[in-house]
Design a protein around this nucleic acid. Structure first.
Lengths: 363, 363
DNA sequence: GTGAAAGCGCTAACAT
DNA sequence: ATGTTAGCGCTTTCAC
């Protein structure tokens, strides 16, 4: 996953509700529990209190409709409530092999830099009853050993953001087919959702073309990435289509520093009319360098376009026109893959999310 | 936790090692596993292959030294290796009540905005064998019901960053005493680590004093927070000590927007010599507004100090002098609380991390 | 030191 | 519809 930037700008207002403390246990209930290692009530406690069998209690409390007499179910529910019962997910998992955990696999936490996206993602995961476990791979060399023995080895699904894991490795690491590739790598077996860069790039170039620009410089990420190759091709096609000459192409690594370095190499005597960066972070670096050389140069003489549509580009100092996708849409696709197993069966394994152009001050 | 900003600037170089695929199972091993629902080898499989009993295998593989004949242990280890065995943490957890999971509780993912900090934290957690599960509370009203039944109800520990949960609620929610309060709220029973704001504030004010400033404006967070109250007091004490007059005190909510709003209210005819903000995000807003009014005003006429020492303040556009703590130190304290149970027993339940002043361009 | 056996708390056959 | 029972995979007594 790319190295980039983020800002959580939005204000957050939460009401602090007063919470009820748990219903006190009656003496007898406490007694039944006392001999165990933990004093948390078990399903057996609930069953006892409701005067039903263990399995009846299990059925009554089950998520999916299991056959239980309505009146019995009520008693069980009441007992559970009174005891403050909650199922032990470990025990459930041992039976059902479902932990309710979804791993989010990243190289390092910086990959979460689009906090808005992850806020939506994790929120939605929770909505559908899943907990997010974040795995920081660091380096992939020990990933396998590391995952082994960790609970991530037994998650319901793994969302792969780390670009160092391929679809096959992912299936191997997690011993499950429920792996969703979000890093642009995929094969026929894997599930994936991927932004469709084409519309956003087309729109951005079109926007530049309307301003009658004639030349462009491209600042890219690692060209070793197939995804980046495709993206560059999209830029070049769109630019050619609008008769814009690619002045120069420079390679960076998506980072702010790379943008700075690239901009410093730009010859002041031969400025391009426009600069397209394949990350907002690089565009920020470019902006800072060029602004230093000449106030107002952007967008007066050079139009600048980023990529990712980070919240950060909304900052006063970095009003960078960008390309991105709707984060809500993206998350919905991921969640649909997670929840709607039928979808994958229907052959819909690779989902796309269209990008679009976000006009701001620089382009 | 405060709403703030972050930037992951550092470049990351990971070597992509080729990984061995798992040792293929022999036919007979596959057979023994076949009748089960899953084809993962179990401890029984390992025991069979090593020709020892289940419990012997368990002991041999146990983390802590259990009595096993050296030669037997070797055989078990070999068998486990050959089978690609890894213990099922759910089953282990059911016995030991240790899941290896640590919940990180936040209001929303924006609380992670100090990605550098969380990168270190989650990395270290993994080092000590813990997995991080991120819980986005959103609103606390349903937190309790929500946590129930989720695996977070059975984590080894909960790290509370959300400022909407108090120590008592936390213990209740997680049914454990292993709750580490990182939001500034605590009581005698709870564990906590807290930055010590005093040294950083003292140093920042001293820095301003050396520049012979005479007046200061304070832009604060929610004054309803006790922590913020204390912080304001520290500023006022330090300012008074150096004979600096507090010109004005304005209230924000730590956000960039709040900084913008506050700065706009500053009367151009009566600029203070210096502005202290209790968050970097607010300082960024202030910087943007004032820069717009008059180029170079900061730091030529006004010195500006932020708080948090976000990586973002290293950006060219926001070279804001700030106050913060060493993130590595902070994480070590948290981890020590997590790992070293003896520490809490010795009464060392509330750990501190000193802040210091980070000089940059604005102050 | 070692193995048999009893849990941990729950779900899912399986009879009834 | 309901209760009994057999696992899920592991740790931990408890005798030997």
């Amino acid at each position: 996953m790319r190295i980039s930037l983020n800002l959580a700008l939005r204000s957050h207002n939460f009401a602090l509700h007063t919470l009820p403390y748990p219903g006190e246990l009656t003496l007898s209930d406490q007694y039944t529990a006392r001999h165990r290692k933990t004093n948390l009530p078990t399903l057996q406690d609930v069953a006892n209190r409701a005067g039903v069998s263990l399995s009846a209690a299990s059925r009554a409390l089950s998520r999916d409709q299991k056959p239980v007499a309505a009146e019995k179910r009520e008693r069980v529910l009441a007992a559970a409530r009174e005891l403050g019962y909650s199922a032990n997910p470990l025990a459930q998992g041992l039976s059902t092999r479902q932990t309710g955990l979804v791993s989010i696999i990243v190289n390092h936490i910086g990959d979460l830099s689009d906090l808005d996206l992850f806020d939506i993602l994790i929120g939605r995961l929770q909505d559908v009853g899943k907990q997010a476990s974040i795995v920081r791979l660091g380096s992939v060399s020990s990933a396998r050993d590391f995952l082994r023995g960790s609970i991530n080895y037994h998650v319901d699904a793994a969302l792969i953001f780390s670009d160092f894991i391929g679809p096959r490795q992912a299936r191997d690491f997690f011993r499950t087919n429920h792996v969703i590739m979000l890093n642009g790598r995929q094969d026929s077996q894997s599930l994936s959702v991927q932004p469709d860069d084409a519309p956003g790039i087309e729109q951005a170039v079109e926007n530049a073309a309307r301003a009658r620009v004639e030349t462009a410089t491209l600042i890219t990420g690692r060209e070793s990435s197939e995804l980046e190759q495709q993206r560059i091709a999209l830029y070049r096609t769109a630019l050619a289509k609008h008769g814009i000459l690619v002045h120069e192409q420079m390679q960076g690594d998506y980072s702010y520093a790379a943008g700075v370095a690239a901009a410093q190499k730009i010859d002041p005597r031969h400025y391009p009319d426009t600069i397209f960066c394949t990350s907002d972070a690089m565009a920020m670096g470019v902006l800072d360098v060029l602004r230093d050389r000449e106030a107002g140069i952007i967008p007066d003489r050079i139009r600048l376009y980023g990529f990712d549509n980070l919240s950060l580009t909304e900052l006063h100092s970095y009003p960078i026109s960008s390309i991105g996708f709707d984060k809500g849409d993206y998350v919905e696709q991921v969640v649909s893959l997670l929840v709607d197993h039928g979808r994958a069966r229907k052959g819909e394994r690779h989902l796309g999310v269209p990008t679009r152009f976000f006009a701001r001050h620089t382009g």
